[in-house]
């Protein structure tokens, strides 16, 4: 049996715990505490990490980790990203400056993004239309990144599954290129 890891990151309230719960075999383990950050209207927040998992038909397991949202815990992000299959960055469009929020995670995972499959899911676009997805794409382009960028409602399982499928497509692209390289030699 093999075990793999997918990582979910994003700001407080972006929906990491909910996203993990949407695809986990069991309710995610959470390490929430009372939120003492008065700037965020949320009673509880994750200070450690969230954990869920799902099992494949061959017995392999995919573990789902949610990072703590606050950037002061960024030392944990790199630890969690080690040997991950992919990274889901969740953006909350209802926050004052979601593009700046995204920048924090792009910086925090800068080294990993050179190889690690990554997708950005933008939540609450229905109620907060600006910035739109094209604004996010422009930000990524300014940083020389072309990452999949999807609207997401983490309460909807299909949306979370699509994020995961997008990570898988990136893995497939890598593998195909590997095969071509070997063929050429």
């Amino acid at each position: 049996m093999h075990e793999y890891k997918l990582l979910f990151t994003g700001t407080m309230g972006a929906g990491k715990t909910t996203a993990i719960g949407a695809v986990s075999d069991s309710a995610p383990l959470v390490t929430d505490v009372l939120n003492t950050d008065a700037s965020v209207a949320k009673a509880r927040t994750t200070v450690g990490l969230d954990f869920g998992q799902f099992t494949l038909d061959n017995g392999d397991r995919v573990r789902l980790f949610g990072t703590p949202g606050q950037s002061r815990f960024d030392f944990l992000w790199k630890i969690l990203a080690k040997n991950a299959l992919g990274l889901v960055i969740l953006a909350d469009n209802s926050r004052p400056d979601p593009l700046a929020d995204l920048t924090v995670y792009l910086d925090g995972f800068r080294e990993e993004l050179a190889t690690l499959p990554c997708v950005v899911g933008v939540g609450r676009l229905d109620s907060h239309a600006s910035p739109n997805l094209d604004d996010y794409a422009a930000l990524l382009a300014q940083r020389g990144l072309v990452l999949p960028l999807l609207p997401v409602d983490v309460r909807r399982r299909d949306d979370v599954v699509l994020l995961i499928d997008t990570l898988l497509a990136q893995l497939e692209a890598h593998l195909y290129e590997d095969e071509n390289h070997d063929d050429a030699e």
């Binding site: 093999h2 793999y4 599954v161 390289h181």
Partner: peptide
Amino acid sequence: KRKPAPSAPVLARPLAGGLIDGIRRRFGL
């Protein structure tokens, strides 16, 4: 210009193909 692709670090190729298919089956994709 071809050079080894920056593969996802944890995946050996035979594992990867089965893993991707396995996850897609898991979610009915």
